[in-house]
Design a protein around this nucleic acid. Sequence first.
RNA 1: GCGCCUGUAGCUCAGGAGGAUAGAGCAGCGGUUUCCUAAACCGCGUGUCGCGGGUUCGAGUCCUGCCAGGCGCGCCA
Length: 557
Amino acid sequence: MDNSLKSLIEDYLRESCQELKKVGIFSKHLPPVFVNRPKKKERGDLSTNLPFSLSQEVGKSTSRIGRLLTSYLEGKSLFSRVEFVPPGFINFFISSAYFNEVLKKIVTQKEKFTKFSYGGGRRIQVEFVSVNPTGPLHVGHGRATAFGDSLANILSKVGYEVEKEYYVNDIGGQIERLSRSVWARLQQLEGKEISFPEDGYQGEYLIDIAKEARIKMGDELSEAGKTEDELISLLGEFTVKEILRQIKTDLDEFGVRFDRWFFESSLNKEIPKVISFMKDRGYVYEKDGALWFKTSSFLPGKKDRVLRRRTGEYTYFASDIAYHAHKFGRGLDQVIDIWGADHIGYVPRMKAAVQALGYSKEALKIIIYQLVTLKRGEKRVSASTRAGKFIPLREVLEEVGKDAARFFFLSRTCDSHLDFDLELAKKQTPENPVFYVQYAHARVCSILKKAKGEGIKLKDLDEVRFDLLASPEEKELMKELALLPDEVKEAAENLEPHRLTTYLMGLAALFHQFYTRHRVISEDQGLTSARLFLIKAVKIALKDTLNLLGITAPQKM
RNA sequence: GCGCCUGUAGCUCAGGAGGAUAGAGCAGCGGUUUCCUAAACCGCGUGUCGCGGGUUCGAGUCCUGCCAGGCGCGCCA
C-alpha cells in the first residue's frame, strides 16, 4: 500500500526543489533527499537537513534556501506547521488529520498497511541455516535461523517474491567421516573392539542413531555379501536422513519452514557443465593435474582456487559454484546467502565465481553474521559440532521458548558478536523484553474483550471523532503507528530485521504509558469509540510486526 | 603477517548514506493498584562513544595510524 510518510515528505521536498528553479536556484544533481526523526519532540515529528546539502550543491545561503523551501511546504495540508531552524534544518509537524487517516487505514487495511509494492515482484532467494547434516542444530545456528526467516518475511512484505532455501551438503568428506563414526558406534554397541575414527564426530547423538539404525535397518546391515564399505555407506544414508529429520523438527519448533531443500548430491551432473561453461569464458585452467578457477581475474593478487583435485574429485567450491549457477538459472533476480563468520574468507571467491558465470556481483548478497559465544555464567562453552560439545538449539527453546529466543537473536545487528548466556536466558524469562511487547498486545486484547462484553458497539469509521484523541500520549502513539511502514521498508532495504525489535519496544512503551494515564472505556461514548479504534490500530501494528519476526502475539498472558 | 567484524552507561546492546543537548533494556534506589492485566507506570545517575591524528560550518557516524577482542586465511567442508 506504500504508506510511507517519509517518502511522502521527500516527494514534497523534491517538488519544492523544482520551485526553487523559478528564483534561479537549481543544481544539476539534486542531493539525496532524506527525512529523519529528530531526537527531540520540540523539533517536530520529522525533519530534514536538505538546506545544508542543497546549499553546498548550489552555493547559495543555507538559510535562504531553507526559508524558501519552508514557504513552499507550508501550504501542504499534511503539515500543521513547517519551520526553518538555523543553521539549516526544516522541521515538520504532521497534522492531526493525517494521523487520523492513518488510524483509519490501519484498521481497514490491517496487515496490508505495511505492504509495499517496490519489490515489484522481483524474485529473491534467501538461503540460510544450511547446516551440514552431521549433527543437530546448535544455539549458534538459531541466530541464522531467526535472522533468515524474518528477513524473508520482511522482504516479502515489501513486494518481493521470496523463496527460502536450505542447502544440504549430503556428500563429501564430512559425510564419510560421519558414516564411519556411526559405524564405529554400531560396532561398539555390538560389543566389538574398534578404534573410533580420529577425525570422527564424537557427539553422543550418534550413539542414539546407531541404536535406531540397529532396530530399523537390522536386516540390511546383517545381509551377507556386502563389503564393509557398502554397509558404511548405507548406514551413512540412514544417518543423514535421520539427522535431517531432527533438524526439520527443530526448525519446525522454531517456526521456520523452508520452501525448498536443495541437496548437494543432486548437482553431480551440473558441476562439469558449469565448469566447462566457465572454461569457455576463459576462467578455468589446468595445472599440476588439477583444474583451477582464475580467482585472480576478479581479485587481483589473490590465489587461484582448485575446482577439481588431482584425484579427480570436485571440491566443495566447485559444487557451490554449480549450486549458485543453478540458483541464477532458475531466474532469481537476487540471491542472499546468510553465512557464519567462519566463512568470511570464502566470500570474495564466491562473488568472483558468480561474475565468472556472467552475473553481476551485486546479484549475490552475502550476509555474514558474527558467531555466537555460548556462556554458562562465566564459563565459555565451545560450540564445535565435531567434538559434540554444543548446546542444541532445542534445549534453549525448551528453556526460554521460541518467542524469547527469536526476539533475543533479532535484537542485535548480525555484525556484532552475540553473547548468549544460558543462565541469563533462563533467569531473564519474566523480564525479557519480548514479554513487554507481548504484554502490550495482550492488554489491548483484554480491553477489546471487555468492551465487547459490555456491549459497546464500534461505530462506523466515518462517525468516529478521531479529533478527540488529543492528549500527548495519544498523539505519540499515532505518530509511532504512522511510521511503521517506513520502519518495515528500512528493515528491508538494509536487510536489518533487528530494527523492528527496536520499534516494537518503543511502540509497546508508548502504549503502556497511554494505558496508565487514560481509560479507554469510559462514560464518554465518543471518546471511548475513538480510543477503541486507536488501540485496535496498536494491536494490528504489534501483531503484524511480531509476525514479521516470527513471534506470536498472545491474546492473553 | 594479511583480510573481515567488533570496541558506546555497572552488564547486554541500539544509534553508521555526518547534523541540532548520545539512547534502550537489565541491574540499583525510591514511589504508584477502590478503576479496561502491576509481566505495568513514574522519579533518581553515570558516559574521555577503545586511544591518537585528519576531513568538515558540524564526527559516535567518514579517512588514517595504533591498541584490544572475535573469525578466517587448504587440492577441508
